[in-house]
Design a protein around this nucleic acid. Structure first.
Lengths: 130, 130
DNA sequence: AATAAAATTAGAATGATTCTAAAAAATAAT
DNA sequence: ATTATTTTTTAGAATCATTCTAATTTTATT
């Protein structure tokens, strides 16, 4: 029971997630996958996403109150707007060594999410008075 | 519509969350709150948690596949076991300035989660062979 | 005291995700 | 290649967390 073999669907799902920079939900991935395999079922998407995640081939990003999103594995960080929840990529460089040193243990990965107010929300708040 | 007034329930919920180091779920908070107010309802807990979170009086921590957890606001980071999902506190110091500088924008807060394998899971994996 | 605004309640509704059991497909073993 | 075993997929029900709705109660304001 080593690394699971990548199946037909798994392979395609991995492609979809890896090539997207938009943090897709299972539902969105499902919609894209259907274009190639019209008979596929949502549970299969979840099965594969979980398998790929277990095997460290994709990342899972949870933003409070939203469905989980799936992301390419390539190291990068995230910027979340506190107001509207909009999620953006940002790269603050690899902090693994620095963090491991501080933590005094070895880590598999880390997840860094900066919360801010996006320009749109900042404007809206100004309009309505803070 | 400034900072919402803290209500009877809100006050107690804030106390519960702030004094706990165990990242409680809404359900768990509900159970504790009931000891004081036996007639309170789960929706009220959610209402207040959301209000407190909006007002930056508590934190919300999402770990994939688990119900949201609520946490004291006091700055600290988290350690999550990839295998069992166990969540621990860890303090790696305040990186706000460093991150703002790198990101080139001002942030409200940040959320840093280290993924690792806890001792128990490491042992289990060794036993079953990786 | 009367009015307005906000919070709470009860319970239904929603939505994301998992589960179950059966069928199909892939892999390994004879 | 045939059979047996394991893994994946399917369909749909089930679950669980969370939100929503509308009515009621509480709190604050005039």
């Amino acid at each position: 029971m080593v690394l699971s073999t990548v199946t037909k669907y798994g392979k395609k799902i991995l492609e979809i997630v890896s090539s997207s920079h938009s943090h897709m939900t299972a539902e969105e991935i499902f919609d894209v996958l259907r274009q190639t395999y019209p008979t596929v079922v949502l549970a299969t998407v979840y099965n594969n996403l979980n398998r790929l995640w277990q095997d460290d081939l994709i990342r899972k990003v949870s933003v409070e109150g939203m469905p989980d999103r799936y992301d390419r594995i390539q190291r990068h960080d995230h910027l979340v707007c506190k107001q509207c929840g909009r999620l953006l990529d940002i790269d603050l460089g690899d902090l693994t060594k620095q963090l491991e040193k501080k933590a005094g243990l070895s880590i598999l990965s880390y997840d860094l999410k900066l919360t801010y107010l996006c320009e749109d929300c900042k404007k809206k708040i100004e309009r309505n008075g803070a």
